[in-house]
Amino acid sequence: MRILLVEDNARLAELVRDGLDRLGFAVDWYDSIEGAEHAQQVSHYDLLLVDLGLPDGDGLDLIRAMRRRRNSIPIMVLTARGGLDDRVAGLDAGADDYLVKPFQIPELAARCRALLRRPGSSIDTVLTAGNITLDPSERSVCVAGTVIDATPREVALLEQLLRRSGHVVAKTGLESALYSMDAEVTPNALEATVSRLRKRLLAAEADVQIKTVHGVGYALFAPRLANG
């Protein structure tokens, strides 16, 4: 995974590059729009991290120019600009995510992974949280190394929750994932599936928790997060 970081603050860039390097990302750093454009002509990148206030222009202009050239590389804005309209402006310009400084490396890495998640990418061939793993290609779930029985619907649900582990996944998103599996879905299908999956994971002594966020959706927490 090669990441292109465009940031004019050398110290911050060094820390970000160092932090992401430790988590297995390869980061190239440039401090100007010109440098970033040049780097993209020379090498291929999977993700772009762009600061907005750059010495030779605005990062938003770089994003717009790239999108006009039909460059569909995932782009995340890293900025100090946190005004009421700034996030929308960033996303409107064509960015896929918008992270306001200051941030911590784990959060940045999680967001990078979310943007990089593509079919065939090595990072998410196997989804892991706590002692459970899910292999999307084989549609199999393991708890503590042992494969457990699960219906295709339960696997689909777990996959969605694992992909956004530690985050709330909206009911609507989960429902559409289940509907695509099966035409006949009752109004309580989601609740019923969650309930069965919880029992199954509990029986298999999995250490993750599926939490209900009433009126919004569900979230899967690995033990470290769940215990604070």
Partner: peptide, 11 residues
């Protein structure tokens, strides 16, 4: 202006 130094400090 404090945000970038705070980010550096945090990292």
């Amino acid at each position: 202006e404090l945000r970038t130094p705070l980010a550096i400090m945090q990292l």
